[in-house]
Write a protein that binds this DNA or RNA. Structure first.
Lengths: 123, 123
DNA sequence: TATCCTAGTTACCGTTTGGGAACCTTAGGA
DNA sequence: TCCTAAGGTTCCCAAACGGTAACTAGGATA
């Protein structure tokens, strides 16, 4: 698990540590739609494994970007949502997505249109 | 080397492939200052190894974000700069950096102020 | 009694990523 | 004759990352 204790040269450095990897920004992007349960999130992220989803959610929680609410029920119910700090990443993710779309178009890369926040953010 | 041939679910997915990893955004962020030679870049990126810098630059070049100009001289001179597509990433990197600064402040994480484009972009 | 449900955990294992160190090239200078 | 400079390449190794499959809890349902 990333520790964030090291000295960063630059904020960009830090951002890479916090949201780097294959899944984190995808998870956050999904959560920007609103509160989601574990399996709901899992369905939204094609190919993610249970293990990876749990692991990444734990790290996001530990770094204060996602919050986790457990209901004492059986079968279990756990809801995930973004924290304020997590929500503030929206602007970044939005810019990423815009650039990605433009890049894909220029390169002729096929893509299913974004399945999430993009449209509503475009507004 | 990343191939970008797979089917992406979303632009975010694609962006992660293109600028993911430990060094790429750092390199791009540095190049936003302007044209730089290999060793100049190397000095700007504390701890990067020659191998990683070359490798990452090659991938950025292949993906059309960076262009490489070789002068036929001895000792060699090679200049790197961002392409138009690379320059368009500035907005994204800027958002990243802003968020990173805010996050660092909230978490009390020590950091040397950004050594690059940040200030001039803030303008 | 057996099975299903959700949200996990655990052990194991292969791939990828990143790093260190040595080597290469070729002209000019000491 | 040897060294230096700049921009690499190559080989080898370790750690991180990510995936598979099996197992868990405990109440509800058939």
């Amino acid at each position: 698990m990333k520790d964030l204790n090291s000295e960063y040269q630059c904020a960009i450095d830090l951002v890479i540590d916090v949201i780097g990897g294959k899944w984190k920004v995808l998870i956050l992007w999904n959560l920007n739609e609103g509160v989601k349960r574990f399996n709901e999130l899992k369905r939204s992220l094609p190919n993610i494994t249970q293990k990876m989803l749990t692991q990444q959610l734990r790290e996001l929680e530990e770094h204060g970007l996602v919050s986790r609410k457990v209901y004492q029920e059986v079968p279990p119910r756990v809801e995930y949502s973004t924290t304020d700090m997590g929500k503030k990443l929206q602007a970044t993710l939005f810019e990423m997505c815009k650039w990605g779309d433009e890049y894909a178009e220029q390169k002729g890369i096929a893509m299913n249109r974004c399945w999430t926040s993009y449209n509503f953010m475009e507004k």
